[in-house]
């Protein structure tokens, strides 16, 4: 494929995937806004002012980056896992498999579309938060960087999940039993300084902690661990998952008999 052909193939896949989640915006973009609004209402308004500040910020301020990340993670993960699995299920994935589109292009197409959904969801939740509190982005570059890279990471993870999935249940197991607990235990609602040594120790092994931390830094200029470490952890995970994805597609795991 020439560069032009590759770009056409990428754009076809990417725009098709974006069109998919935009067309069903009621299922893809609205629910995260709903959920986070409820969090803001309850933790921010109803009980938030009864809780003491965390590292100098109100619970609502402290929580916003974490809530954003939780939704960004599940939106990007679900976007790719459900779309890829569905195309496997109805076999339309064969349109890609018989074509000369390379596996790199396939990964980029799915993952960038999933990332775009993640970023949109993140921005929407941040905008929702602004309705409730006066909050601003102190480091915009870092803000978009962490939103994008987190989305990309979990899009890749969603793709791997979909590659292995044999039935619809298989794409909801990981979000329910792994992503949700990891998100809740990744320092979304608490600071590692507030919890016991043991829990803090485990939190530091949780990659989501670093993502939340990076985003929190970009918004509040508050960091519980070095942002550079967050950056290194993220980059390492992305490269690793990308290589795994590529290998799986090359081998045709879950796709070719």
């Amino acid at each position: 494929m020439t560069l032009k052909e590759t770009l056409i193939a990428f754009w076809t896949l990417f725009s098709k995937e974006c069109y998919r989640f935009l067309r069903i915006w009621g299922q893809t973009l609205i629910p995260p806004i709903m959920t986070s609004s409820l969090y803001f209402l309850i933790f921010g308004n109803f009980i938030g002012n009864r809780i003491e500040n965390i590292n100098g910020f109100t619970l609502m301020e402290f929580m916003t980056p974490g809530l954003m990340m939780m939704s960004v993670i599940s939106a990007s993960y679900m976007n790719v896992s459900s779309s890829f699995y569905f195309s496997k299920f109805q076999r339309s994935i064969e349109e890609l498999l018989i074509s000369p589109t390379s596996n790199h292009t396939i990964i980029w197409g799915f993952v960038l579309a999933g990332s775009l959904r993640g970023v949109i969801v993140g921005v929407l939740i941040f905008s929702t938060a602004k309705i409730f509190i006066d909050i601003n982005i102190l480091h915009p570059m870092t803000f978009f960087f962490f939103l994008f890279v987190t989305s990309a990471l979990f899009s890749l993870a969603g793709l791997i999940n979909a590659i292995f999935a044999r039935k619809f249940d298989d794409i909801s197991i990981v979000p329910t039993f792994i992503l949700t607990p990891l998100s809740y235990l990744g320092g979304v609602f608490y600071s590692v300084q507030q919890i016991s040594e043991t829990w803090a120790f485990f939190t530091r092994f949780n990659p989501i902690f670093y993502l939340v931390n990076g985003l929190r830094f970009s918004i509040l200029d508050l960091s519980e661990t070095s942002v550079n470490i967050s950056f290194v952890v993220l980059s390492f995970l992305i490269v690793t998952l990308y290589i795994i994805c590529f290998r799986l597609l090359e081998k045709g795991v879950g796709l070719k008999t």
Binding site: L13, S99, P100
Partner: peptide, 21 residues
């Protein structure tokens, strides 16, 4: 059959063409 049932006929064709560049 291995068509995406939610796509229009034209979209099926144009997308498939796109995958070939």
């Amino acid at each position: 059959f291995n068509l995406n049932v939610f796509e229009s006929c034209l979209a099926v064709l144009i997308n498939q063409a796109g995958y070939y560049g």
